[in-house]
Simulated assay, not measured.
Amino acid sequence: MTPGNPIRHVEIPVTDLDRAVDFYAALFGHDFERVEVDGYPMALFPTHEGHPGASAALVMGDIYRPTRDGAVVYHHVPDIQRALAVATDRGAAILFPVKDLGDLGCVAEIEDSEGNRLALHQPAPAAMKEPI
């Protein structure tokens, strides 16, 4: 097996794709590509070949149910306080306040516009300067 990151793609369930795209676009500044796969509307997060991380999509459909229970997806943010301010301005609840993890940076968790638990991670300043 070729070494690499084991996670290739993450699908985040939503009940209102437009609302979710608006929320995530405001929070992260991403543009989303809209597609449909097997009858399920999706909004794809941008991907950059050759860079770390998995692809992801917001997905709406009968088998996709937002939840606070289950897997927690961590999103990189350069400024966690700013991200929390944007999220709460858009109605998000803070589920886990900012916790400093020293050399690992800091994390917080919120509930997104759809009811999913969403984690935010800001690397430590030294880690932000070094290539990954």
Rank of each mutant, 00 (worst) to 15 (best):
P52I: 03
I132A: 13
R34E: 12
M60S: 14
D38L: 03
D103M: 09
E36H: 05
K99N: 05
T88P: 04
R34K: 11
L84S: 05
D38Q: 11
A54S: 15
A26Y: 05
G4N: 10
D62G: 14
C106R: 14
R82H: 10
Q122Y: 11
A43E: 14
Q81S: 08
D100G: 01
A93S: 13
P66F: 03
S113F: 07
A87L: 06
D69H: 12
F32V: 02
V86N: 06
A56D: 06
H121C: 06
V10I: 15
L101H: 08
D103L: 05
Y40N: 15
F45E: 11
I110P: 00
R82D: 13
M60A: 15
D31I: 01
N5K: 09
H48K: 12
M42A: 12
G4P: 12
V73K: 10
Q122F: 04
K99T: 02
R65F: 01
P41E: 09
T15Y: 05
M128H: 05
P123Y: 10
I12M: 13
D89N: 12
T88H: 10
C106D: 04
R34V: 03
G105I: 08
A124G: 03
M60V: 00
V98C: 08
R65A: 11
F28P: 04
G91T: 08
H48L: 05
D79S: 02
E130T: 14
E33I: 01
F28M: 10
A71F: 06
D31A: 11
P46G: 09
L27Y: 02
E130Q: 12
D62R: 00
A71M: 09
V59L: 09
D103Q: 04
Q81N: 11
P13W: 05
D89Q: 14
H76L: 13
Y74F: 15
D100L: 09
G91H: 10
L17I: 08
D100I: 00
R19M: 04
P78D: 15
A87N: 12
E109C: 12
C106Y: 00
S113M: 04
T15A: 02
P125F: 01
E36D: 11
A57G: 03
S55L: 05
H9A: 02
A25E: 15
I94D: 05
E49L: 02
C106L: 06
E111N: 00
A20C: 09
A92V: 08
I94Q: 07
V77P: 09
F32R: 09
A119V: 02
T15M: 07
D103W: 00
N116G: 08
D89W: 00
R68D: 01
Y74A: 13
A54E: 11
I132T: 10
F45I: 05
E109G: 01
R82P: 01
L101A: 14
D18A: 14
M1S: 15
T88R: 13
G70V: 04
C106K: 11
G29I: 02
P3N: 13
V73D: 07
P123D: 06
R19I: 05
I132D: 13
G29T: 02
I94L: 08
H76N: 10
R90F: 04
E33Y: 00
H76Y: 15
G53W: 04
A127D: 09
D100F: 01
I63H: 06
I110W: 07
P97V: 02
I94E: 14
P131Y: 00
E36M: 06
Y64G: 04
P13M: 10
P3H: 07
K99E: 10
P125G: 12
P6N: 13
A124S: 14
V37M: 13
G39T: 02
E114P: 04
P78Q: 12
